[in-house]
Amino acid sequence: MEVLWSVITMGALGFLFSFGLVIAYRKLRVHEDPKIEKVAEILPQANCGACGYAGCRAFAEAVVKGETTPNGCPVGDADVVKQIAETLGVSAAEVVKKVARLHCRGTHEAAKNRGVYIGISTCGAAHLIGGNKQCSYGCLHFGDCARTCPFDAIYMSEEGLPIVIEDKCTACGKCVEACPRNLFELHPVSQGIIVFCRSKDRGPVSRKVCKNACIACGICSRACPEAIVIENNLAIITDYKKIDPEKIPEVEKCPTDSIGRLKKEDEG
């Protein structure tokens, strides 16, 4: 009999408390998106803050809220980005994918050398002494960007320019920082037209040093005045969204090929 009483008492007490806890849980439950936990687990847990958020967890919260994109983590490799995108239920393609684009077409052939450079073969070193090219704005061809790319998305072509492999590029921005001449910029992958030159030299000068330099002739800006202007001897696209696709052939009449769509050889 006593055994029965003790069992009943303990059972009743246990039931009572668990009932109380269930009610409390209903009221006090923290409505945290379970995705945050999942995304946080995928992240490298380096808590380096390179993404601009206070650690991996804060980044995970921001991604789930949609404040940033899955590829915002510079440390995580392509696999991490893919996993996050899957967790969030967006395929990696739905996220506005950006890629790094080089704003220069000064290949070995097009851009003339200033002399023979026999120094340390990095862009950073070459840039210090003004570079090996006559053009003081263009690509130096030593591939600092390719070496710095954590995803192996950049390689140096035979013409001497870095080629970005779109599929591998996560738009982490390392190459943008690495290039001493700031030739890289992140663009949405679908971006139609890009100016492939950064030279601010006057037309005759830039024409002399590089075949593919912008000579500020103004053909493109006349074709599409609402989006393209000539400033400091250089064509500048002020608003990519305003470019009318029908006007692209007009714009591409550029005599030096320094503005236009990507060509086959520019793509990886």
Partner: peptide
């Protein structure tokens, strides 16, 4: 039993 339940409650809170 009492203590465990209460701690759970405080933790949630």
């Amino acid at each position: 039993l009492v203590i465990a339940s209460l701690v759970q409650l405080v933790e949630m809170f």
